[in-house]
């Protein structure tokens, strides 16, 4: 079986589009497109909101409310929204499926980013915040020069967690007649073409691992060494910043 999967994956004809089938490359790009779109929208919503709530300590209930969203079954919401929305978009376009998918993905990505951004700002040492305003920083200066850079590890872990959940859930979007890597899983299942199905699983896993690698590399360059504790190249075993939040902020995944 593993050999068959390998054969399926290394067959170049599966990677490119043919008259009958959409290839891996196209589906991969579609998958990345959904996820990137949803992640961008979620960040535009959750980052400013989390920073604002953390900085002013107003509207904390929003964080709790967003967290409660995690109890929703993603597939169920996806199907519900599709049933509601897709009839509005008749015709041959994907829009009727794309919109509910993106909404579900955004709903999924907002809670971890919001919760972690909020927690990051809240967890800033009160002495540091005190010193910052005591030296004459204005509110926005305290937020952007002190609280934000110090919160970055938590914010990154929220974004990474969100990205992983998006990649996973975008797979389920293929359950609707929509592109993405999940196509291979659901088509393989329907056609009892198990090498294709498992090959699709391998591709999704690879995309998730690669995305996390890319994001963690970005994080390494963006977060100050004073916070990560990576002072010298000799230092090993610096704690994974995701450690601190796994219990508080890790979310439901599809």
């Amino acid at each position: 079986m593993i050999g068959d999967v390998f054969t399926w994956l290394t067959d170049w004809s599966h990677w490119t589009d043919t008259r009958f089938d959409t290839g891996i490359i196209t589906q991969l790009l579609a998958h990345i497109r959904f996820c990137a779109m949803a992640l961008a929208i979620a960040m535009v919503i959750a980052l400013p909101l989390g920073l604002f709530i953390g900085h002013t300590n107003r509207g904390r209930w929003l964080v709790g409310a967003a967290n409660a969203l995690r109890a929703l079954p993603t597939v169920g919401v996806l199907v519900l929204l599709t049933v509601i929305i897709s009839p509005q978009f008749q015709g041959r376009t994907d829009t009727g499926f794309l919109i509910p998918t993106v909404i579900v993905l955004v709903l999924l990505a907002v809670p971890p980013i919001l919760a972690n951004t909020f927690a990051g700002v809240q967890n800033v040492d009160p002495g540091v915040r005190d010193a910052a305003s005591g030296m004459g920083m204005t509110g926005p200066q305290v937020l952007f020069r002190v609280e934000l850079p110090i919160s970055l590890p938590l914010i990154f872990s929220g974004v990474r967690s969100a990205a992983l959940q998006l990649i996973a859930t975008a797979t389920v979007a293929s359950y609707l007649p929509l592109g993405g890597l999940g196509r291979f899983i659901y088509d393989g299942l329907a056609q009892q073409d198990y090498p294709q199905m498992i090959g699709g699983g391998v591709l999704v896993a690879a995309l998730a691992l690669l995305t996390d690698l890319v994001l963690s590399t970005v994080q390494r360059y963006v977060v100050s060494r004073g916070i990560t504790g990576r002072y010298s190249t000799k230092q090993v075993g610096a704690p994974d910043p995701r450690l601190a939040v796994v219990t508080e902020a890790e979310g439901a995944r599809a």
């Binding site: 040492d125 002495g127 915040r129 005190d130 010193a131 005591g134 002190v146 977060v223 100050s224 004073g226």
Partner: peptide, 9 residues
């Protein structure tokens, strides 16, 4: 202040 409140970053 007491614990200096230095900016860790």
């Amino acid at each position: 202040i007491q614990h200096a409140g230095l900016f860790p970053h």
